[in-house]
Amino acid sequence: MSGLLFLIPIALAMGLAGLLVFLWALRSGQYDDLDGAAGRVLFDDPPAGPVGPVNPSQQTRSTPS
């Protein structure tokens, strides 16, 4: 039974990591437009803007093609 002492923390840490990744994805706006994101992948042009809400501090200039 002593294996539990490190197996339980490992299992919990993995679960927690998954939760944190999900919360991060949610915060960065990846769940805001599920319909659009599904179609966006079909166009291979450089993205017209960053993923996420418009926030001047996060902006990167898009390359006109």
Binding site: D32, D33, G36, G49, P50, T60, P64
Partner: peptide, 12 residues
């Protein structure tokens, strides 16, 4: 040339 970003949200 003036546009920094333009993003359309298809859901909303």
């Amino acid at each position: 040339p003036a546009v920094i970003s333009a993003r359309v949200n298809l859901t909303s």
